[in-house]
């Protein structure tokens, strides 16, 4: 008992006594940093892999090309007459231009062969889909408050390829809701779509904070 205590005492308090014990003093420090590094890797690298599953969009869509052609977002993502928002276009919207091939791009050929000719809907994966309990009115934000699409959706109109769609394995929610930064750090308004982010903006703009404004 006492001998082992003696030893430990040397480790803890006696780095200047002998050279052997001076590097032994470093053992716990090294062990701490090694453990820190391991857990850092787990937290930043492995954990997101475990938590999120990844899927590819059915078609590699070029937003920039379409925005250039069509002019603005509302050409495809339009409001219906009753004020509801159409969201992701149906294939009937695509047919308006792509009934037959306009160019030679393989992705366009895929669209026509796999979806338009058989008359099937394209199973787009919606990055911004909120959980079922959320009511979101595009009319209130775009028409009434005059917000830019970019404020929430980011510069998606400038993208040339679709990025992979990641979703939480447990909740099945898109990763865009929680944000891509695993620590939850936000630099742009469109980095996250959590309730806190909605509440933050609503508070800044003095919108009613009652639950039934955004919930259903």
């Amino acid at each position: 008992m006492s001998t082992s205590e003696e030893k430990e005492r040397n480790v803890a308090g006696g780095e200047q006594r002998t050279e052997g014990s001076s590097w032994r003093f470093l053992v716990p420090v090294i062990a701490f940093f090694a453990g820190f590094l391991v857990f850092l890797c787990i937290g930043w690298g492995i954990f997101p892999k475990i938590l999120y599953s990844e899927k590819q969009q059915p078609i590699d869509f070029n937003h920039q090309l379409h925005v250039d052609e069509m002019g603005d977002c509302e050409a495809c993502h339009y409001f219906r007459e009753d004020g509801s928002f159409s969201g992701i276009p149906k294939s009937e919207n695509c047919i308006e231009c792509h009934e037959s091939a306009m160019g030679e791009h393989p992705e366009e050929a895929k669209l026509i062969d796999q979806y338009i000719e058989p008359g099937k809907e394209i199973p787009w994966l919606s990055y911004a889909r909120q959980p079922d309990c959320v009511f979101f009115s595009h009319a209130a934000h775009v028409r009434m408050a005059g917000l830019d699409c970019m404020t929430c959706h980011g510069p998606i109109g400038e993208s040339e390829h679709t990025r992979p769609y990641q979703y939480n394995r447990l909740t099945k929610y898109s990763r865009d809701i929680w944000g891509w930064n695993i620590a939850g750090i936000k630099t742009n308004t469109w980095d996250r779509m959590k309730m806190d982010d909605c509440a933050e903006c609503h508070e800044e703009n003095g919108t009613n904070q009652a639950c039934f404004v955004c919930h259903k």
């Binding site: 008992m1 006492s2 205590e5 003696e6 430990e8 005492r9 803890a12 308090g13």
Partner: peptide, 8 residues
């Protein structure tokens, strides 16, 4: 413990 761990 650090100060008088040796003295039982």
């Amino acid at each position: 413990w650090l100060c008088k761990g040796g003295e039982n």
